[in-house]
Amino acid sequence: MIVRVKLFAVAKQAAGVDSIEIEVPEQATVADVRRALVAAVPALSPAAKFLLFAVDAEYAGDQMVVTPKSEIACIPPVSGG
């Protein structure tokens, strides 16, 4: 299935777009999304373990299952304030 991932900051810069469609297995988890994102944007691979994800605007653990309707966002380490 295809999911869309919102990208911010260094992830957006690395991909050159503010969201990206990636293919993941049915019943994919956040961990699968991370792997697929890094495969699609190899420049992010050194940062992979630092990337958190949000599903429907809430932080999501690696085991959370996503669907094509999920609003998925890649959250690099935050630096507000």
Binding site: F8, A9, V10, Q13, A47, F50, A54, A73, I75, P76, P77, V78, S79, G80, G81
Partner: peptide, 28 residues
Amino acid sequence: IDTLKETVPVWKQEHWADGTTEWVHPGL
């Protein structure tokens, strides 16, 4: 303020005086 800086999804990009820019990602 401490918790905001750890949890709220906002990012800063430095514009350094040498003309370079850089997203700030603590730990990265």
